[in-house]
Design a binder for these strands. Structure first.
Lengths: 146, 146
DNA sequence: CTAGAACCTGAAGTTAGGTTTAGGTCAAGA
DNA sequence: TCTTGACCTAAACCTAACTTCAGGTTCTAG
């Protein structure tokens, strides 16, 4: 089963020009073409795209993702490198989750802050509120600034 | 109490050139200068930097962050806008956390995959392993690609 | 056979978010 | 007073990751 670039764009939500850009960068080393030169994406390329998305989210650059995909072409000799890369990603993503959680807490504090301000009609109300009156869960995320 | 740009760089980990860039972009509308023209950061600016970091992590651009800081200057008239912005951020960050969790799961699968491959000396081992033998927690995150 | 939708290429353009450079000025200690 | 490390500006530069453009080819439905 094979897909045209337009179909892949629909399936994955990645634009056609991005798919062509990835191809230009060598992300699909085994992709076939029709006689007329039209790209034929297979399930392999769809799976590669899922890994690309995963690695991109984990903070890897296109260049480094390409490096990984090259290792995949090399076979078992590169197993150690590939393993190490994923363990490194694991740590990075753990850090990202922690940071995102802190961000979330700050945002929740701000939501409370502005709800309180709007209810009172003025920002002075939450700004001057004694700490004990701030809901416990968000108390410690208080910043003085607006 | 006020801080030089170098001190702020040390405190926050943000480079001096980035701090000057933020200033150029108007992120510190109330920052004072010494007679000689040297920036004097106060606690207000430090707090603004914390909010900038928070909003940046939540996916807002510098331009939009500046927009928010402008609203803060406007006083209570902009309370609703600011509230809405934070509720929007709340949703965005929730989506980000979900995506990061999926990414994490995929990476954990890959860690298992490569550990198994390395133990066996070949990728064929995890690749051909029947689903029942894959640890339960990660089973569903399996991708066929390397 | 033909129209038009979908595809192709190489090259240039875009955007965000900084960083670097060049040429100065400021401020605190010896 | 002098030095020297920290600071200043404007403007040019940089990079990643795409996107757009111009001009041409392929494929498919009627």
């Amino acid at each position: 089963m094979s897909y045209s670039i337009g179909e892949v764009a629909n399936i994955t939500g990645i634009t056609i020009s991005t798919l062509r850009y990835y191809d230009r960068e060598g992300m699909f080393p085994n992709m076939e073409r029709s006689n007329g030169g039209i790209r034929m994406f297979s399930d392999t390329e769809i799976e590669t795209l899922q890994i690309i998305e995963c690695l991109k989210t984990s903070g890897l650059s296109i260049k480094d993702i390409k490096q990984f995909l090259n290792w995949c072409q090399e076979g078992d000799d590169s197993l150690q490198k590939r393993r190490d890369m994923f363990y490194e990603r694991l740590e990075v993503v753990e850090k990202q989750m922690e940071e995102l959680q802190k961000t979330m807490n700050t945002i929740k504090f701000k939501c409370w802050y502005y709800d309180t301000a709007l209810a009172a009609g003025t920002e002075e109300t939450p700004k001057n509120m004694p700490v004990e009156e701030i809901p416990e869960e968000i108390r410690k995320y208080r910043y003085k600034c607006d």
